[in-house]
Design a protein around this nucleic acid. Sequence first.
DNA 1: GTCTATAACCTGATAGAC
DNA 2: GTCTATCAGGTTATAGAC
Lengths: 211, 211
Amino acid sequence: MTDKNNVRTTANTDMEFRILEAAKDVFMEKGFAETSMGDIAARVGINRPSLHYYFRTKDRIFQAAFGMIIQKIVPKVEEFITAKDVPISERVASLVDVYYEIFKNNPTLPLFIVREINRDVNYIIDTIHNTPMRMTLMKIVTSLRTEMAEGKLNTVPLPMLFYTFYGAMTFPFLTKDLAERLLAEEGSFNELLEQWKPYIIRQMDNLLRVK
Amino acid sequence: MTDKNNVRTTANTDMEFRILEAAKDVFMEKGFAETSMGDIAARVGINRPSLHYYFRTKDRIFQAAFGMIIQKIVPKVEEFITAKDVPISERVASLVDVYYEIFKNNPTLPLFIVREINRDVNYIIDTIHNTPMRMTLMKIVTSLRTEMAEGKLNTVPLPMLFYTFYGAMTFPFLTKDLAERLLAEEGSFNELLEQWKPYIIRQMDNLLRVK
DNA sequence: GTCTATAACCTGATAGAC
DNA sequence: GTCTATCAGGTTATAGAC
């Protein structure tokens, strides 16, 4: 499958799939600039010219891999976020679990997103705009606004909600290496995450729950 | 002045100073890999070989500039953080003001630090260890622990306090471009920061203040 | 000290044999 | 389709004139 610019966005052959899987991993870990075609080729087990055969340029490989990566940041969670009869702390707890699972399997994803925001925001905006993520986001926003208007949740400006949740959600992963270095003996990073989880829930509860 | 590896850590001449000032700016903005010697030379107004004359390698320029940059992350604030008779929310408010000032003047600093944590943590650890920042940090930690033991502040694990404060403090700057893109008409980034400030204070108050 | 010239290397990308 | 060989451009770093 190709997009409107005739750039492959889905793998059509086994080799294309292998290349995109490898590219996804390396780009996510090292970012665009610090990833070389040699890095990707080595991980696939082929040489550089073959990469150019399947995807003409480095930019096109990145574009295809980028789509696969960024879809992780808005997981399919609108069903239980918008579950109005479930207490907000339980909904947040579930959401934290989902993101913990994603970030534990992709610990460099938060840094990748932050790097890309600073490299070129439009790339992310456009990608979200042209995928089902857009609908997911709109449904979540609409649902939250409705609950706030009905007085079932405190009225909180959405940017403030975004900062609170994603700041708390991503910061430990952005500073993972620092934590592991400082807490060497005191406990593993995963234990730190478990300790942190109730604090995220508490922050969101403190914002949203009607007392 | 040179450190134990005989690397200049302070500018001895006017030209060394000019080079380090330029290097500091460029490295902070673009990171290590994406900064070239040409970038630095151009900003100083000399050519590349002259850079090598003053600091043999790119790594050594970075090492010297890095020390100057990282000292910003622990500003000289222990006096008013450890002011036990001032309500904690006022102390946090002052701290937020200090960091807002630093980050407004250096909006790429948080991303720089995060990038460096993921490039090589030991660099940061060592730099803190060999500068007065170490004493500042120790005094702050000791003071907080004392106040917690005395029941003047709630007992909160320090890593949780660190996550809460620095997560909230840095996240808006890490995602600045996204905010500016999304809020184009709704208001400037600085207004968003002012809106966010009471939320940071509230989060810290919620953690630390004895009810 | 600051310059020009250049070495040595790595990058993305292409040509062409097989 | 996958390889070797190669190009053009950019990088750090050095040599040597002045």
